[in-house]
Measured scan of single mutants.
Amino acid sequence: MGFKLLSKLLVYLTASIMAIASPLAFSVDSSGEYPTVSEIPVGEVRLYQIADGVWSHIATQSFDGAVYPSNGLIVRDGDELLLIDTAWGAKNTAALLAEIEKQIGLPVTRAVSTHFHDDRVGGVDVLRAAGVATYASPSTRRLAEVEGNEIPTHSLEGLSSSGDAVRFGPVELFYPGAAHSTDNLIVYVPSASVLYGGCAIYELSRTSAGNVADADLAEWPTSIERIQQHYPEAQFVIPGHGLPGGLDLLKHTTNVVKAHTNRSVVE
């Protein structure tokens, strides 16, 4: 069995187990497998329904001669939608809004960016022009300005110390501490036991640490421990890039980060 097929099978099995364990909360999309990078042309966006009122959005972007996937989250909030992270750029984010209108038909009224990198804030200006209120932590807003990236308009308070959590509509926002970046936030959907790890969490097929220019490698494993301790009931975990899975993604990420750190020390 090929690795790609095995990865998709694991996603399907995880979703099936969740649907059985929580039949009222989960209505997993039966329309197909989780979209992969090879299936999404740059400039297009796919939506994948995880649970009743919960979707991931998947886009792709060219970077350094390669094409990478990027995940975000959409959560229903009454007759409105909360968006977590842009679709990595203005063109993708405009396509995301169009796809949401086509498939869901509810307005996106608020959006949260989970850290300051372009795959999370690139497209904020498109959201703002569409009347979406954009939010991020003060740290993310400051770092985005320093980096020359787009800056969300509103500040999220109460997320300055490791372990801080605040309720934001249908989700809980959690600051686990520094990891992929010093400002990275985690998003949890309690009604569906869905954990969105953003770039602080890796997919299972990833074996290298990737972009760690703004990471705190020493603190990252401790931050992941905080996530595990705060959300032990999480059933569906979405990484910032690639295929979702279960809580095993947290341990896998820790292993990859520690291996990278150990290699760096040896070198």
Rank of each mutant, 00 (worst) to 15 (best):
I50E: 03
I100V: 10
E101H: 15
L143F: 11
E267D: 14
L97Q: 04
W55Q: 01
S22V: 07
G246S: 11
A259W: 13
L243S: 06
A234H: 01
Y48A: 11
A192S: 06
V75N: 02
F63C: 12
N71F: 00
S264F: 14
R46S: 12
N184K: 01
L204K: 08
V256M: 11
L97K: 00
S16V: 07
V189D: 03
G123R: 03
A259E: 09
H117T: 00
E172L: 05
T222L: 13
Q235Y: 14
R76Y: 12
A213N: 14
L127Y: 04
G65S: 08
E172W: 06
L97C: 01
G53P: 05
L81Q: 01
D248H: 14
S155G: 12
F168I: 14
E225G: 11
F63V: 10
T253W: 00
V37D: 11
S205R: 12
A259H: 05
H230M: 13
L96Y: 00
D183G: 01
V67C: 11
T140R: 02
L9Y: 08
E203M: 02
M1F: 02
I50A: 11
V166R: 09
L82A: 12
V126R: 12
K258H: 12
S223E: 02
V237R: 01
P170S: 09
G72L: 00
L185P: 02
A179P: 02
E101Y: 08
G122H: 10
L5P: 05
S155I: 15
N211V: 11
P152I: 11
I100S: 06
H115L: 01
N262S: 11
Q235K: 06
L173K: 01
T222H: 13
R226V: 14
E101T: 10
R110H: 09
T222F: 07
K4P: 15
N149C: 14
I58K: 06
V237W: 02
P232F: 05
H180C: 00
G123C: 03
A136M: 04
L106D: 13
Q103N: 13
E157T: 09
S208Q: 10
K8M: 05
F116V: 03
S16M: 05
V37T: 09
H230L: 11
G246A: 08
T114V: 00
P138L: 12
D64L: 13
D214P: 08
L24R: 09
D119S: 00
L13E: 13
S191L: 06
E145C: 12
L9M: 06
L185D: 01
A179L: 02
S30D: 08
V54Y: 01
S16L: 10
G2N: 15
V256F: 04
G148V: 05
A129P: 02
W55R: 01
P107N: 15
I74E: 03
A130G: 14
R76K: 13
T109I: 15
V146L: 12
V112G: 03
S161F: 15
P190Y: 05
A144M: 06
F168C: 03
Y231A: 03
G210E: 13
V112W: 03
H230G: 13
V187D: 02
A218D: 10
S162M: 14
A98Q: 11
D248W: 07
L247M: 05
P232G: 11
A59V: 11
G122Y: 05
D85Y: 00
S161I: 15
R206C: 11
I186D: 00
S181C: 01
F26R: 07
V121G: 01
H180K: 00
D214I: 15
T182D: 11
E99S: 14
Y202I: 07
S113A: 15
H115R: 01
V112I: 06
R128T: 09
I104G: 00
W220F: 15
D64W: 12
H260V: 09
P152N: 02
F3I: 15
V54R: 02
S56N: 11
R141W: 03
Y188L: 02
L106P: 04
A111I: 04
H115C: 00
G240F: 03
R263W: 06
D52C: 04
P221D: 12
V146W: 14
K251L: 05
V265L: 09
V212T: 12
A218Q: 15
L82Y: 11
V45M: 06
T86V: 05
P41V: 12
A94D: 11
V67Y: 07
L24Q: 06
A90G: 13
I17P: 05
A21S: 09
R110T: 09
S27L: 09
A111N: 15
E33Q: 08
Y202T: 09
S137M: 13
L13T: 14
D125I: 11
S205Q: 14
F174Q: 02
I224G: 02
A179F: 02
K8A: 06
L83M: 15
P69V: 12
G89H: 01
E99D: 14
P107A: 11
S264V: 15
G158I: 07
S223Q: 03
R128V: 07
D164T: 15
P176A: 06
P107I: 08
S56A: 11
H115T: 00
N92K: 13
G78D: 12
A51T: 08
Y48S: 10
D119E: 02
H57W: 01
E172A: 04
P69Y: 15
R206F: 14
F63G: 10
S223G: 05
D119L: 00
Y188P: 00
G210K: 14
S160Q: 14
E150K: 07
T86E: 01
K91G: 14
Y68W: 06
